[in-house]
Nucleic acid binder design. Structure first.
Length: 388
RNA sequence: GCACAGGUGGCCGAGCGGUUAAUGGCAGCAGACUGUAAAUCUGCCGCUCCUUGGAGCUACGGAGGUUCGAAUCCUCCCCUGUGCA
């Protein structure tokens, strides 16, 4: 058992304030996890993520397998050490790429054949292979290999997709249990790197996690309530360390997303973390957290930032708009992040116009600060005695 | 001064008798973005009107000319680059 999950408080609405103990980080939940697909939360250095209070970030199995290669990362002591990230790490299984790379893949019961988006080379991913890669990467949490069902999907299609995901969940779990002892940080993956935090602090957890890697199962079932139920029940039987709700925010209307989350949450065990994958807008993550979602991740704050969309207390702000050309105000007057404290809208607009790399960095830092700030406030309010 | 090569919409640059308000790219303006093939993608981008659709006007250095029709052919002029004097 890799993780312990301590519930601190639960509200009537189902919202939970809890503490998730992972090998490299004790995560205060509900938590938002910035996405760092290729071993980097794009445009933001690790030390900045730390100062923003990011507790856990994502990596992607498929991308890291292709480049630089999971065996290379294993030899370098695992993903934590490779990217110099001492805190929590979760790897997605590559299941989302079954969805997003739909034109570059072929799915069979056995697994998925991908054509690399980098060089066109062919690669076969099975649940077992995804587990091998994720164990080599050694994130605190690995995800079962699933098929993210597209939207819209006919019932027969959603059933077939779910059948596949459930079979793959079983195979993922069996293979994971048989090999999880191979994580690099349990095997002392090759000495202490001079630049690593442990060079100064031998007891630093980046070198050696405390406890074991965990595996989460993923509920699918399209937008069909009974399929979702069936999915949840079967995963619970298998006994994963935590449960994710996948296949949402794939183009369906927002109220459907909400409905699916509301339906599935009560089906999941109360004593284990619940993770909704790939959401959402600022108001969505707050709403879901208050309903009892413990973990969420989304590329939106980072991607939108690079494209010039800032999330602020005043709403969405398209920083590249001409109207900000000489705006001397901070991006968000109510924000005290390092960007809002120092830079003007006019400057951020200029960086965007000029295509300067700093634009992506500053925009992303603000958006992440905004997202992480929302979760911090939500945690505080969930912890407080139930309001009168 | 002579010889070549050129002057196209904010810029670069196609076009070389009609299907051309004129291919592309850049810049500009706006929009999208939800387990990242994303510093990406989409739309608009001469001016003026009307509702989509369209109508009118102005445009390929300048002035003439040839032609039913010219950015495209001819003449002269102006300008730029290169080479030779």
């Amino acid at each position: 058992m890799g993780l312990t999950f301590d519930l601190i408080h639960t509200t009537e609405a189902g919202g939970r304030r809890a503490r998730l103990h992972l090998p490299h980080q004790t995560v205060e939940t509900p938590v938002f996890m910035p996405v760092g697909t290729a071993g980097t939360v794009k445009a933001v250095p690790q030390e900045t993520l730390e100062s923003l209070g990011a507790q856990i970030i994502l990596g992607n199995t498929y991308h890291l397998y292709l480049r630089p290669g999971h065996e290379a990362i294993r030899r370098m002591g695992g993903l934590h050490r490779f990217i110099s990230w001492p805190r929590g790490l979760l790897t997605d299984s590559g299941g989302f790429q079954v969805f997003s790379l739909s034109e570059l893949r072929k799915v069979t019961d056995e697994g998925v054949r991908f054509r690399s988006h980098l060089d066109g080379s062919s690669h076969f991913f099975t649940p077992e292979h995804s587990m091998d890669v994720q164990i080599a990467l050694g994130a605190d949490i690995a995800m079962a290999f699933d098929e993210c069902t597209e939207y819209p999907a006919e019932r027969s299609r959603a059933e077939e997709s779910l059948r596949l995901t459930m079979a793959w969940a079983r195979r993922s779990l069996d293979h994971f249990r048989a090999h999880q002892h191979e994580v690099p940080w349990l095997n002392d993956g090759g000495g202490i790197h001079p630049g690593s935090p442990s060079a100064r602090d031998p007891g630093h957890p980046i070198e050696r996690g405390i406890g074991a890697q965990s595996l989460f199962g993923i509920v699918q079932g399209g937008m069909y309530r009974d399929l979702r139920k069936q999915s949840a029940e079967r995963l619970i039987e298998m006994d994963f360390d935590g449960y994710a709700i996948g296949g949402l925010s794939v183009g369906e209307p927002r109220d459907l997303t909400l409905e699916m989350i509301a339906e599935v949450l009560p089906m999941l065990p109360k004593d284990k973390p619940r993770y909704v994958m790939g959401v959402g807008y600022p108001d969505e993550i707050e709403q879901y957290a208050r309903m009892g979602v413990d973990m969420m991740d989304c590329v939106l704050p980072t991607r939108a930032a690079r494209h010039g969309l800032l999330f602020t207390s005043e709403g969405r702000l398209t920083i590249k708009n001409k109207r900000f050309a000489e705006d001397q105000g901070p991006p968000d007057p109510a924000c005290d992040c390092m960007v809002c404290r120092r830079y003007t809208r006019a400057y951020l607009r200029h960086l965007m116009q000029a295509g300067e790399a700093l634009s992506a960095t500053l925009n992303t830092i603000h958006n992440l600060a905004y997202y992480l700030g929302i979760m911090r406030r939500v945690r505080a309010s969930l912890q407080a005695p139930t309001a009168a």
